[in-house]
């Protein structure tokens, strides 16, 4: 109810938050201190421990948005909870794509010698970012909750098709961006031991952070919907009272 304090956390989310925080500290120590410099890039390689997990989380977020959107469209009762998870996940995905683009641009300046090139990987990632900005805007276009859920679910199922395009862009087109180092089925992993461990630590940490953020955000969206519904209920009640007076 509006005016009362309604937390979005539970005991489980608080525990997840504490574990995520501990992993973040572990990642910072390994990423900045314990892991070695790269023989060519030097300390610049440490950007990888944020850049790669960020785009990984963005992929997961947009995939989750698509999956729950499909569940919403195919479900019998069409619970709006699925729609709120889709919205929350997409919001966080956009945030992590932005982090990936910013860290990638800084990393590019230090290694490639330029902040940006209109290269297939960079262009497709920018396009992905813009697409989901559009998705979030479409969610805010108005109408009933069900109209919002239906139109955004359809859009989410179309937008998710961009992810394979982004991932395989470095294979399809000649690109300045290097090919995948870990998620590359054609070759062995090409990261020295502690670098590989730190990268996986980053991916695990960022994934837990994403889960924690989605859990909280979808509850915040549920509260927002409840506030909007409450306002509508009040309006109906008011009009009914006015009609009775007349």
């Amino acid at each position: 109810m509006p005016g009362t304090s309604t937390p979005t956390g539970t005991r489980a989310t608080r525990m997840l938050g504490v574990v995520t925080l501990a992993f973040t500290v572990w990642l910072v120590v390994f990423g900045l201190v314990v892991s070695a410099e790269d023989v060519v890039q030097g300390s610049t390689v440490r950007m990888m421990y944020v850049h790669v997990p960020s785009i990984w989380v963005a992929y997961v977020a947009f995939a989750l948005t698509a999956v729950v959107s499909a569940v919403y469209l195919s479900g019998k009762n069409r619970s709006l909870a699925w729609d709120r998870v889709a919205g929350a996940s997409a919001e966080i995905g956009v945030l992590f794509v932005a982090i990936s683009l910013i860290t990638g641009s800084l990393w590019g300046r230090l290694t490639w010698g330029t902040y940006w090139v209109w290269d297939a990987r960079l262009t497709s990632t920018a396009f992905l970012f813009i697409t989901y900005i559009g998705y979030l805007a479409v969610r805010g276009l108005g109408g009933s909750f069900r109209q919002r859920a239906r139109r955004s679910a359809v859009l989410a199922l179309l937008a998710v098709l961009e992810i394979p395009l982004v991932h395989f862009s470095v294979v399809i087109w000649r690109s300045l961006h290097q090919e995948s180092t870990v998620a590359n089925s054609g070759t062995d992993v090409e990261l020295d031991g502690l670098m590989l461990f730190t990268l996986f630590l980053g991916i695990v940490t960022f994934t837990m952070l994403f889960a924690w953020m989605v859990l909280h955000r979808q509850r915040a969206l549920a509260l927002q919907d409840a506030v909007d519904s409450h306002g509508l209920d009040l309006a109906i009640k008011q009009r009914q009272q006015e009609a009775e007076v007349r």
Binding site: E37, D38, V45, G113, L176, Q178, T181, D192, M195
Partner: peptide, 10 residues
């Protein structure tokens, strides 16, 4: 533009 490979060596 420098094209870094996908190999990382400590």
């Amino acid at each position: 533009e420098v094209k870094h490979s996908n190999e990382y060596v400590e």
